[in-house]
Design a protein around this nucleic acid. Structure first.
Lengths: 225, 225
DNA sequence: AAAGATAATTAGGATACCCTAATTTAAGGA
DNA sequence: TCCTTAAATTAGGGTATCCTAATTATCTTT
């Protein structure tokens, strides 16, 4: 409303989280999942979701969940584009460590005008993927769909190449990187423990197989040979 | 307070405005001046100033005005540093037009972590001035003081070189640029109209002298020969 | 089909901003 | 010194965003 007020930063954070969750689980996205992802209470999320619904950015089905409208999806893709471009910039130009750039990009993504976004993309040579392997939407918000599958769904004994990692928190990325799990790494699923037990993954160039919990394995996407 | 909330963006905008106003007029800064600069009502400014005072960022003397504390000055300088570094980046790397980058930098300056700021400075070759000629504070917040004087105070007939322009709104910069008034330009003050009348400035390479209002002339700093 | 568990929603509050209108203070000229 | 005026302050509201505790709906399980 004024020169000072923040221009829909919350809105963008919600839209981004929704689009990310829609990629993992089929829409609609549960209020509680959003709440967990954003670190905010369910009533707060519900309230915000209602505000987003009024603006025609999401559809809320009571007791079911939220899905993005076309308008909301476009806005979310624009955020994702800015986020991943900044990540490329922070790694390629500023030489900041791979695992740390996600958080910095989360701040910059909300402070970037369209003209800056386009100029940044050109400066970087219009890259098509962020440093974690995730595709960068183009200027109209289109992404080429990934054919990679979650590591969780890779058959045992099947070798594959790591394509991308979603939900790029620094902690997770550091953990994976220390085990050689970076985009492009060759790996093979050796074993899956029963119940909610870990997956044993042999990474090329590593001495020991890595043990990954299922939560983690669901975020690592691979391209089988 | 939460993962979503905005981390003191307002705070930084206030501190930045205060430091800028302190450079023009002697401290303390009047509440009404701040209000005008920020485009916000006086009661709002007063309220915010009280919040800043509680955090030991400013000192408020009732009915007198505001001054930055040492802590506040450091914070303000950090904002100024980020702002001017981003301006350099937007001009030098992204090749965006000189007059437009101020507004973009105003957004980015609040979304830049210290590690990013330092890496950005290194990437740019640790520049010492922004594209509008204003000095970039170093990592500890020190600036070399400028010896430039406001154009308003230049004696008639004295030739000089344009050093820097403060308060870099796009409108003002475009106006000046169209008249050849960019940092480094050679100029001479030809005449000053009485009362609040304009200054007549002859710019090297321009056909006609430019007429500048006093509000504007107070923002243009020059180095007399 | 009833009961229990889980998720969603409502109720009731808090804080950081913002605003207008009314009042008070300070400062300078008659 | 007193009065006028401009600036500062107080009073009283508004919205967006967050929270906890209480209630209600849905789903699962016996």
């Amino acid at each position: 409303m004024s020169a000072i007020s923040i221009t829909g930063e919350s809105t963008e954070m919600y839209l981004k989280s929704i689009v990310e969750l829609e990629m993992l689980t089929a829409p609609p996205v549960a209020i509680s999942h959003l709440a967990q992802r954003l670190g905010v209470s369910s009533p707060s999320v519900l309230e915000m979701v209602k505000r987003l619904a009024v603006q025609n950015l999401v559809t809320h089905t009571p007791y079911k969940g939220v899905s993005l409208t076309e308008r909301g999806r476009r806005r979310a893709m624009a955020v994702l584009r800015r986020h991943r471009l900044w990540e490329r910039f922070l790694v390629d130009a500023l030489h900041l460590p791979w695992e740390t750039v996600h958080d910095y990009a989360c701040q910059l993504e909300h402070a970037t005008a369209p003209a800056v976004t386009d100029a940044l993309a050109a400066f970087l040579g219009n890259p098509t993927a962020c440093p974690h392997g995730n595709p960068i939407p183009d200027a109209v918000g289109d992404v080429q769909p990934s054919v990679a599958v979650p590591l969780l769904e890779l058959p045992v004994g099947q070798s594959a190449r790591l394509a991308h990692i979603i939900y790029e928190e620094a902690i997770l990325l550091e953990y994976l990187a220390r085990r050689g799990l970076v985009p492009g790494a060759r790996l093979m699923l050796e074993d899956i423990a029963p119940y909610q037990g870990p997956l044993m993954v042999r990474v090329d160039g590593s001495e020991h197989p890595a043990a990954l919990g299922r939560e983690i394995a669901a975020r690592v996407f691979v391209l089988p040979d």
